[in-house]
Write a protein that binds this DNA or RNA. Structure first.
Lengths: 185, 185
DNA sequence: ATTGATACTGAGTCCCACTCATCTTAGTTC
DNA sequence: GAACTAAGATGAGTGGGACTCAGTATCAAT
């Protein structure tokens, strides 16, 4: 495990600026916006962008990660909710957040960056485990439900909901259906 | 509704050649292969490719559609199956076919072509309607299930299964869960 | 055969991701 | 705080690929 020495102060500053600019630019003009535009908005030369993010996909990936950080943090709080339906709420929230950021994610997807919802959720694994456990012991969910499976299903729904722009009602119906299945058995 | 006059004989021939070439090239070298390469393999000038498929995404889309035609035909037969569990079989088959063509679709996805499983399924809408109807009257499925919803769910699963390479067992478990939900209510 | 529309050609344009030789600056040492 | 050096920034330049269009060839209808 190498320990890459810490970035110089200006480098750190620029990196942050570039990411900020990228989030904005890609949200507004789509993922096909040029790297030059990102550089311009960040007030930095192109070379600098490429120093921090060697390829455009790298930059896109970084943007996605940073967006997911927001999502993750936002949703993490729910894991602490006390009641038995917390799992259900949690899932609804994930879908909702996905839907809210639909425009951004769609834009990114448009030029090849697959948004790995699953990865983001994996970071929440411990929290989700707790939720599943609680739901299970409350009897709201079949005994043999595996967290992994839940995550896969949720990712799938989220992905599709984002891509196709499901409305709130449709999301609700779908979740209801899913939980019907999760309960049975 | 315009009636675009039929293509000239040579045009039709070239169109077919280009599509063939594109399927091969993209399968081998990924979706980032150049349009020139496709033209070369088709034995045609670049301009001709662009006459038939004005943008590269259009070409990619056409390739995907032609692949899906195979999938669709393959699966269409099942719609005729007589027994009440036909719907379930149908869904399983869709997932399986998706999994089989994972490599190809992954290649395409890699450079931004989202594979719209939903679109392909929409072409089967009448057949699926029949399946849903039959399942409903056989009581295998809740009365208020809408075809649209089924398609959305199936697309989602298929998409995720392709992207993440679900194994057969996992697909089975997931479908079982889904149908548990579809039955209830 | 004539003719007009339809289709093909491919050199050229433009845009964009990415490079690199050169200059600038942050952090360190005495 | 001056000198030093390695990390970082710069931006004109390169290569490649998507797409255009004026010119030419081909089809099919009379």
């Amino acid at each position: 495990m190498e320990t890459p020495r810490p970035l110089r102060a200006d480098a750190r500053r620029n990196r942050a600026r570039i990411l900020d600019a990228a989030v904005g630019v890609f949200a507004e003009r789509g993922a096909s916006a040029s790297t030059e535009e990102v550089a311009a908005r960040a007030g930095v030369a192109i070379g600098t962008v490429f120093r921090h993010f060697p390829t455009k996909p790298d930059l896109l990936k970084a943007v996605v990660m940073s967006l997911q950080d927001g999502l993750v943090a936002d949703v993490d709080a729910l894991a602490g909710a006390p009641d038995a339906s917390a799992l259900r709420l949690f899932c609804a929230r994930v879908l909702a957040v996905g839907a809210d950021n639909r425009a951004v994610f769609a834009r990114l997807a448009e030029t090849g960056t697959r948004v790995h919802v699953g990865d983001a959720l994996s970071r929440l694994r411990p929290a989700i485990d707790r939720l599943v456990e609680r739901a299970r012991s409350a009897g709201g969910v079949r005994a043999d439900l595996v967290t992994e499976e839940l995550i896969a299903l949720l990712s799938a729904l989220c992905q599709e909901a984002m891509a196709e722009g499901w409305g709130e009602e449709f999301r609700e119906r779908t979740l209801a259906l899913l939980f019907e299945g999760l309960a049975g058995g």
